[in-house]
Design a protein around this nucleic acid. Sequence first.
DNA 1: GGTGGGTAAGTGTTCACTCACCTACTAGAG
DNA 2: CTCTAGTAGGTGAGTGAACACTTACCCACC
Lengths: 201, 201
Amino acid sequence: MTPSSPAAPTRTRILDAAEELMGSIGLVRATTKEIARAAGCSEAALYKHFSSKEELFVAVLQERLPALGPLLRDLMADPGDRGIEECLTEIARSAALFYDASTPIGASLFADPALLRRHRDGLRPMGAGPHQPLRELAAYLRTERAHGRIHPDANPDAAAALLLGACFQRAFLRHFLGEAPEPADAFATALARTLLAGIGR
Amino acid sequence: MTPSSPAAPTRTRILDAAEELMGSIGLVRATTKEIARAAGCSEAALYKHFSSKEELFVAVLQERLPALGPLLRDLMADPGDRGIEECLTEIARSAALFYDASTPIGASLFADPALLRRHRDGLRPMGAGPHQPLRELAAYLRTERAHGRIHPDANPDAAAALLLGACFQRAFLRHFLGEAPEPADAFATALARTLLAGIGR
DNA sequence: GGTGGGTAAGTGTTCACTCACCTACTAGAG
DNA sequence: CTCTAGTAGGTGAGTGAACACTTACCCACC
């Protein structure tokens, strides 16, 4: 998001500019002319580095969108001395921040199904994609269940869908409503507590 | 989504065609020429009914996107003889279907922040918007709590965020991955059960 | 005879993309 | 060590196509 220094390689500056504009003025109005202007180079230079506008967008998606999976893996690989509740809270907090950063561009893809398809097909061989965090959280919950730290009848897939879904929708709504970013701590805490305790009497 | 009959009023046919194209080829490629062709009229006719392409899109969003709020209100106003679990299951099922239908267009908005802003501002005076279902489900849970049907310490806002967030993200992922629609019954059942029982031991 | 709803054929603008050319650097031959 | 040819990376000035939108006109109906 931060405008890259003029010293950075042109390719990097173009990716930065494209990412920034996709988020700010949107995929629709992020033209090659605007991107080149923001990157401080000519349109022709842009085409020296990317063969088409679509290829540039795909490169932004694959090289710039952060990945939640590895982040979750770190959190879960190191249980530390935290209890399960603190652990789930931390996961929710990270997920909320991650989705907050990636939602605008991720959702934009639906405006251009051809681009979405290209992005999806580019992700597949890497084993990446927005469904991976769900898988990984569910796997984590399964091991916790095996160690008797959560209820033996708990449904890991449903629990993962609930926790990450809430964080995802929160990010979507915040952007939709144009609200300022705000710490997700209280939100994460309430989610983890509610998910663990349930709401039945 | 179904192509309107040629007998329908032109304005209706244009809205239908625009909605269909926004979902199928995407906001980016839904041009006035294509929309007119799909509606079986001339571009000029389109401009007799809508002063600009943006106004057409806003009209599609406001007149065609279904509302989840009223649907939830019906479900919740008539508790019938169902227990709380069946009720939550039914809510989740409806929400999953609703989000499945509205996600492609809803997400598209992020590709054009100016359009998103216009849509949001048009929704505000009507008291509508994607955050309303959360509010309403939370209110419902509050009354259930007051009647002692859920745990007195339950957090209605967190519970609503978990349940609807899971349905929302499911729809997003299904469209992202290009999966075929599939009954949401098992999903809804698992969510409701997990939310009620919690996963703690 | 004016008005609502329709059309064919534009118009100017903007878009993604290209072309001819330039400059700096690198590498190999003499 | 120098000459030279190639190459990577850059530019200003286009180009044709596609776009949102308009104009001039038509016609059926009150």
